[in-house]
Design a protein around this nucleic acid. Structure first.
Length: 587
RNA sequence: GCCCGCGUAGCUCAGCGGAUUAGAGUGUCUGGCUUCGAACCAGAAGGUCGCAGGUUCAAAUCCUGCCGCGGGUACCA
């Protein structure tokens, strides 16, 4: 069998292979099966073999089967490995250049250059092909400010959605937010105080540019009053009920209603502008005012069926039966709490999409809460609960351990972060574009594993060197710049399989071929940081290669090197796209 | 108290069952642009992987206990 890599330049047709059809997409699986056959033939043991990517010095793939087998067979692992190596070398002579035994008994496989080049054709698998998925994230509340946490969760949710979409899923990105609820009562109360009463016309005095900030200030004032002043607290509770009543009565005309609707719209305008700025697009927005009635009705129905119970004037779900907390779904005022609104949201999403899987992405302060909500839903809509996944990330903390709270007003707004990074970027390059700013911010958030808190150091996050978005974007632009200079030089991937590759070339090629495996892993784990780690290693590999090897004017190596750089730049661009980061040709 | 999460170089993080030297970035110190973009590259220094047991041929990685930090624990979201 002879392997030939075709071209990865999109305009060129699919590669042709000599000999029997060889599918590079399954190279790894085929190798694993081949080694498993050797194990069976030699030792009569059936076991699945897993190949891993070892340190480059050891080869392209490694298997630890000999170590696992040794004890079972009562033999020395090196002996077992040696025997496996001989036979594997024989059976895989066409694709594998070298089979060696190292360390305690690892079996290391090194592919032929042709096989490695053929692996460029591989595409990551599409496990979500044909599936309908709903991702819900960001979830800002009208009447409150967008802080750095919203920015973080939006970036994470986008990357997750991108991964699922790439994997073949039809992804519906939706957003949930509280246009009713106690926080609205607090802000409305403070707004009315500021206006000196229910005078909607006075809202016109607030300059457009200051609206979101003005509302945020009023939220903080309302919260303080709620905590410190009993009279204010009662008024806020009343304002909260009043807001619900606006929806019940479809009231758009009373003075109170006009203040509410105007300010609500200000919030949505502010959200839209922000999402546009960071390149996020939601298909649908679920305001709590829409989910609350559905949730309320559902909880009341299920109350009669015994799923929920009354307790101290409220309607609760007794989570203690399941080792969870007991939570209030309808409060003593008869209003739905966040729990009931979430029930309503789940049902609406279910009715709208009949999804295969619904993924809710939020901060991890809500994990126990969500378990209770899902357990309650499971009682009357088990299929819906089963198909819902709650994926959580940590909080964004300020360096120094200060926790930010929009309630207390000591927070960093989302736009502050973007503005800071923009300012810092401009110091390095006065003509820096939005792509680099967003690249820096998104990458800074995504490079950490999702789950734990992340530390946001305004000074450091602003740095755009080292393991950063701009580093990758710059590496990409450099590669494109070389390719642009060599426009006339043909460089299909065939150039990589004719003749022996030099060590630096092979090393870069090897790294490029890891892309499919990395994407598959990031997708199955829903962990975008694997892409970041990989892309950074890839870019380092390229930068090193580029530093030490002439490309244009390198004579007989030129075509192969250009082909390599072309493949590299394409992969880098695709990887960044999965993260929601642009890869401009020039910076 | 109970439940959940986290503890890896000064700092920020990868690694989450395997390889003699536990990897990056950053910071500190050295070198490298008359040559394809130096937002780059090459190198040095820096770690009893919170502590103690256990499982395993193999543990930063799995299990148990302890310590430390954070979150949750009925009418907030």
């Amino acid at each position: 069998m002879r392997l030939r890599a075709g071209s990865f330049i999109s305009a060129v047709p699919a590669p042709k292979y000599r000999g029997y059809w060889y599918n590079p997409m399954r190279m790894r699986q085929e190798l694993e099966q081949a080694v498993a056959r050797v194990v069976r033939d030699l030792f009569g043991v059936n076991m699945s073999v897993e190949l891993t990517r070892p340190d480059e010095q050891f080869g392209d793939y490694a298997a630890n089967v000999a170590l696992q087998l040794a004890k079972r067979l009562g033999k020395n692992p090196r002996e077992v490995a040696d025997a496996l190596a001989v036979k594997t070398r024989e059976n895989l002579a066409e694709t594998v250049r070298e089979v060696s035994v190292a360390g305690p008994g690892f079996l290391n496989l090194t592919l032929s250059d042709e096989a490695l080049a053929a692996a460029l054709q591989a595409e990551p698998t599409r496990p979500w092909q044909g599936k309908t998925l709903v991702t819900e994230y960001s979830d800002p509340n009208p009447f409150k400010v967008l802080h750095v946490g919203h920015l973080y969760t939006s970036v994470v949710g986008d990357a997750i959605s991108n991964l699922l979409e790439r994997a073949g899923g039809t992804v519906h990105r939706v957003n949930f937010g509280g246009d009713v609820g106690l926080h609205v009562g607090k802000t409305m109360w403070a707004i009315l105080q500021a206006l000196g009463g229910e005078y909607p016309d006075k809202l016109a005095e607030i300059p457009e540019a200051e609206r979101s900030e003005w509302m945020a200030e009023n939220y903080v004032k309302g919260t303080q009053a709620y905590e410190e002043n009993e009279t204010a607290k009662a008024e806020i509770v009343a304002a909260n009920k009043h807001v619900y009543k606006l929806f019940a009565d479809n009231d758009h005309d009373s003075p109170f209603a006009r203040v509410y609707w105007t300010c609500r719209q200000w919030s949505y305008d502010y959200f839209d502008a922000f999402y546009a700025r960071i390149g996020t697009q939601f298909e649908k927005y679920y305001p709590e005012s829409e989910t609350a009635p559905v949730g309320l009705k559902t909880v009341q129905e299920q109350l009669e069926k015994g799923v929920f119970e009354r307790s101290d004037g409220a309607v609760v779900f007794n989570g203690e039966k399941y080792g969870l907390h007991t939570r209030v779904f309808i409060n003593g005022e008869g209003l739905p709490t966040y729990e009931a609104k979430d029930v309503g949201l789940s049902i609406k999403k279910w009715d709208d999409y009949r999804f295969d899987e619904s993924i809710i992405i939020t901060g991890n302060d809500i994990v126990e809460y969500m378990k209770v909500v899902l357990k309650a839903i499971e009682q009357f809509e088990p299929e819906l609960a089963k198909r819902t996944v709650h994926l959580t990330h940590g909080n964004v903390k300020l360096a120094g351990g200060v926790k930010m709270s929009s309630r207390k007003g000591n927070f960093l707004r989302a736009v502050d972060v973007l503005d800071m990074v923009a300012a810092a970027s401009r110091e390095i390059n006065p003509e820096v574009g939005d792509d680099a700013v967003l690249g820096a911010v998104k990458y800074a958030f995504l490079k950490q594993r999702i789950g734990a808190d992340i530390i946001f150091d305004p000074k450091e996050s602003v740095a755009i060197e080292g393991n950063s978005g701009p580093y990758l974007q710059y590496a990409h632009a450099r590669a494109r710049s070389v390719l642009a200079r060599a426009l006339g030089t043909p460089h299909t991937a065939d150039a990589l399989s004719s003749g022996t590759l030099e060590p630096d070339e092979r090393s870069l090629l090897r790294k490029i071929t890891e892309f499919t495996e990395v994407v598959e892993r990031a997708t199955s784990e829903l962990m975008p940081h694997h892409i970041c780690t990989y892309l950074y290693e890839l870019a380092q590999k390229f930068n090193s290669f580029y530093e030490h090897n002439r490309v244009i004017g390198s004579g007989e190596r030129e075509a192969a090197r250009l082909a390599l750089i072309h493949a590299y730049a394409d992969i880098l661009k695709r990887g960044l796209a999965l993260l929601g980061i642009a890869a401009p040709d020039h910076m």
